[in-house]
């Protein structure tokens, strides 16, 4: 494959030196099918070793490497350079979160909100002796929502979250959907009470940024709409 020259601008921030983030430019040659992560690795290993970013599995499973490239949130490891037709890349940390260093953002708030909706099976009935059975039809309700890898790309792309950082955000609400619609779970009522709040499900204005950003192509807005209907049904 032929190599091509690309110019990259990265938003850098070193808390020990800088008062605010600044742009640094890099020029390098990349293969046509290099991923954004390949490029970040190239910069870190051969050009500027002080660049910080999160990465782990490099196969779109761990959800560490979500960043904002040319104005949209992507997973660095699964996004090829040729997805962006321009030969210029603008790489920034996820919006809506505080920057710790360079492309590393503070996800504490994100996981705190995830904990709020109780992301575990709540059992009130007696526990079966053998396994919990669930038919394929029952599982099909939640089969798409369990694909979430908690990368934060959706929550960080949500304009409702930018204006109100207390909003639960699409990732937590998707997790709430995953448990409320799970036939084995008995905690639907308490979860509905948590999301039926001014910072809960009603902050979703069907903007669809989460759906565009999701690296697993989960139709988050559809599930949030189902949740809204469920919350209304529950309060009648």
């Amino acid at each position: 494959m032929s190599k091509q020259k690309i110019s990259i601008k990265i938003l850098r921030y070193n808390p020990e030196k800088d008062n605010k983030p600044h742009w640094s430019s890099y020029q390098l040659e990349a293969e046509h099918d290099s991923t954004i992560l390949d490029i970040l690795n190239e910069i870190r290993w051969n050009i500027d070793g002080s660049l910080s970013y999160r990465r782990s599995c490099r196969s779109a499973i761990c959800g560490s490497c979500a960043i904002k490239v040319n104005g949209q949130n992507v997973l660095a490891c699964e996004t090829p350079v040729h997805k962006f037709k321009a030969k210029k890349l603008k790489i920034e940390p996820l919006p809506g979160f505080r920057i710790i260093k360079d492309l590393v953002v503070d996800m504490d708030n994100f996981f705190e909100k995830l904990k709020q909706i109780k992301p575990f099976l709540i059992l009130k009935k007696s526990i079966p002796d053998k396994e919990f059975s669930q038919s394929p039809e029952q599982f099909s309700d939640i089969s798409e929502s369990v694909l979430c890898i908690l990368c934060g790309a959706c929550t960080s792309s949500c304009p409702s979250l930018w204006s109100n950082p207390e909003y639960l955000g699409p990732a937590s609400l998707l997790k709430a959907y995953r448990f409320i619609f799970d036939t084995r779970d008995d905690g639907a009522i308490e979860r509905i009470d948590i999301i039926n709040d001014k910072n809960g499900i009603w902050r979703c204005h069907t903007i669809f940024n989460c759906m565009e950003a999701c690296p697993k192509n989960i139709n988050i807005t559809e599930f949030l709409s189902k949740l809204k209907v469920k919350v209304v049904e529950n309060s009648i």
């Binding site: 921030y13 808390p15 104005g71 949209q72 505080r98 304009p159 930018w162 204005h205 069907t206 940024n209």
Partner: peptide, 22 residues
């Protein structure tokens, strides 16, 4: 840690859904 201003978030790409919302 550095918290960027909300104006900074406006640089996010607007898809059809966000144009419709705006």
């Amino acid at each position: 840690m550095y918290k960027r201003t909300k104006i900074y978030d406006l640089s996010y790409h607007n898809f059809i859904g966000s144009w419709a919302w705006i």
